[in-house]
Design a binder for these strands. Sequence first.
RNA 1: CUGGAUGUGGCGCAGUUGGUAGCGCACCUGGUUAGGGACCAGGAGGUCGAAGGUUCAAGUCCUUUCAUCCAGACCA
Length: 492
Amino acid sequence: MAKEITPRQENYSQWYNDIVVKADLAEQSAVRGCMVIKPYGYAIWEKMQSVLDKAFKETGVQNAYFPLFIPKSFFSREAEHVAGVAKECAVVTHHRLMNNPDGKGVVVDPDAKLEEELIVRPTSETIIWSVDKNWIKSWRDLPILCNQWCNVVRWEMRTRPFLRTAEFLWQEGHTAHATAEEAEAKAKQMVEVYAKFARETMALPVIVGHKSPNERFAGALDTLTIEAMMQDGKALQAGTSHFLGQNFAKSFDVQFADKDGGLQYVWATSWGVSTRLMGALIMAHSDDNGLVLPPVLAPIQVVMVPIYKTDEERSAVLGQFETIKKALEAKGISVKIDDRDTLRPGFKFAEWEVKGVPVRVALGARDLAAGTVEVARRDTLEKETVSLEGVDAFIEDILAKVQKNIYDKALAFRNSHIRKCDDWEEFKTEIQKGGFLLCHWDGTTETEQAIKDETKATIRCIPVDSCVCEEEGRDIYSGKPSSRRVVFAIAY
RNA sequence: CUGGAUGUGGCGCAGUUGGUAGCGCACCUGGUUAGGGACCAGGAGGUCGAAGGUUCAAGUCCUUUCAUCCAGACCA
């Protein structure tokens, strides 16, 4: 069942051009490294948002919004965080344009220089903590659980559509707690929310684990991650949840009066997922015919393609479609009738396949006479001619099967590309083939770095579940003793 | 910033030793078609990334510059 890695998928850019652009999800903007997400692509993002947002709210999190611009001085407060995160930023220095005195166009007005530069947020920790400190006086004010959906900008030197764009959309959750235990539990809870979302909504199997200190978010005491495997065998970090300890609270002086009347720093978490998830969706499920969308996320779950020669046939077929559409919509299924008169059915079939629509219904004169329809599913490309009677229930069932099958397929693929490895020479050749290698690690940053330098492979995570890693052994590189295996892979 | 490559109709490309720009797709018109990306006929669309130079003549040669892509450092 596992899809073999094909040459065309070894280079994601090539793959992107072949599949995603044709799938009409996004296009490159004139602004370097930014993306225009087209309506069809954005509809997928909106679906993701709505599922995640609901899950967040079930854990007591509320949405808020903080400013896009952050005064430069805010970044001076958290040295470690800034050193790790905030190097590549867009900086606002002026606030006005003027007509070019020497010719056409406009220039920046030199008189409109800002006293203090503003940074376009690369992430909002600094501004949120600056605001939060005013909300937190007493233990009764805690916990504060807030999330914001927004865009952020990171002036990356190299960008990749969906995976690393200069501007991207995301949600960032930030919480403040009275105790370390409560904050750690929150970080764990949120990574589980992400894992559940990845598995059940995106049909994407993920490994939950801790990041090694080297791969941790700057300023965090612990970073939890969900790691997914793409069809080329590379790893993709799909979401992270950080236990920040009291680092940020101390930097921003966020203290509260506890029950005993003492002053304490709050314990914090932050967690986020981005439009990178759409990259994961594309790279995990697509095939050579284009995108394959899990029905739960598909903006259009069922597309109907009429086949006709005459106007009479056309109206008869479309009439039949309307009936089926009503029945499907009554079940909460989104339906599109492709009644475009200028395109041939074969073209429409191919086009909707590129867009990843899970189920296609075709109906022509032949079916009208026989009282049947043709139902095709995107994941297996299987076609079946079934009776009009009860076709809505049939399609509902197929949608559920597609959702499950896409997950099972991705899981089987991943499992067949995870293996243990205990020999350094073997590691060096095996890791280049893609997939995850479960290896012993001595726990030192030096070893991790040496392996990265030689092979480009990194520790994706130290799993908390889903594999049998707890065993004695010796570090793959240094030979020092180790008590558990970790996941190594080459990552996006 | 370092190394490599590329800039020619909307998109993808060709263009020989310099000689006045062409192909495929898409688009427009008409017709025949229609159960897996239709076919025929006709049509519209480009100061060849920009600036300068050599030449009777530059898409082509020279210089400068800008932009994009790929590989590094960075990263969700």
